[in-house]
Write a protein that binds this DNA or RNA. Structure first.
Lengths: 154, 154
DNA sequence: TATTGTTATACTCTATAACTATA
DNA sequence: TATAGTTATAGAGTATAACAATA
């Protein structure tokens, strides 16, 4: 097992060090992100469609407006996204029983299955490359993955 | 100073562990990448324009065809990118002295300055969030940044 | 009258196909 | 004849504006 150990020096970093880290981390994340996106381009869903499906899978049924806000697109754009996903059988629309204006959207069983398949395919590409790394690097990434998620949600 | 130290256990990881890492790393990278892209949306350049300018800044003058290949777009698309960047004064075109068909593209001084400003702005956003992390997390990210770049180029 | 979602329309980015200029 | 780049045209994705239905 590899672990992070402190050797006992000051816990604050210089502004310069932080700046350098910001730059290199941004480059690394953007570059790997671009590759992952390119690899996932044959799965038949646009990035927004895929993100919407993932949000529905994670957060359960949401109104069209809530989805638009979550994905940071305008309502008319989300309408088109949902129309496409519905035509593909991946989501279903139903009227909100308490408010007739609201269109509740939920992922279908097929939608969840498709999402799983897409994720497995993307993971496979990355796994292949991870397997080629030395164990120290893998351990670094394991710890970084969790920090990156927290950073993105901050 | 924080350092990674091996405690001496097996250097191979189970396929399951690798799979889990692949998933969480993909999610973390994609999510942070999306945030970084959204933050950089007010800098007036499209992602491809920015990437092209960065490539020119890094690799020196390149032909339009070489740029198209580097950014993985078709030549007509790169023509439009260069037309836009040239109109903005960020790149310059010149004829190749040895082959009249080739259009050599290079970043102007203004282009390099604009690139620097954009990078500083994006870094600033990330820096603000990095500064809020505990030092252990920062050290993890410092080591991960380099590994991520290698992974993307693999 | 305010709000949710849709339709109409336009703009941006990228692609393929056809064309021009040079080798 | 082959290659580098451009112009012409089309398609995908998103936006704003105008509209319909419900609260």
């Amino acid at each position: 097992m590899l672990t992070i150990m402190s050797t006992g020096t000051p816990s604050t970093l210089s502004p310069q060090a932080l700046h350098g880290l910001s730059t290199s981390l941004r480059i690394g994340v953007m570059r790997l992100g671009r590759r992952l996106r390119q690899e996932g381009q044959r799965d038949g869903l646009t990035p927004t469609q895929l993100a919407t499906l993932a949000t529905l899978d994670k957060s359960g049924p949401l109104s069209l407006g809530e989805l638009a806000a979550a994905e940071r697109v305008q309502p008319p754009s989300m309408t088109r996204v949902i129309v496409a996903l519905e035509a593909a059988g991946l989501v279903a629309r139903s009227a909100d029983p308490t408010d007739g204006r609201v269109a509740l959207v939920s992922a279908t069983r097929a939608g969840r299955a498709a999402l799983g398949a897409i994720r497995r395919r993307r993971d496979a590409w990355l796994e292949l490359r991870l397997a080629a790394l030395p164990p120290q690097d893998i351990e670094i990434l394991r710890q970084a993955a969790e920090v990156l998620e927290r950073l993105a949600d901050a």
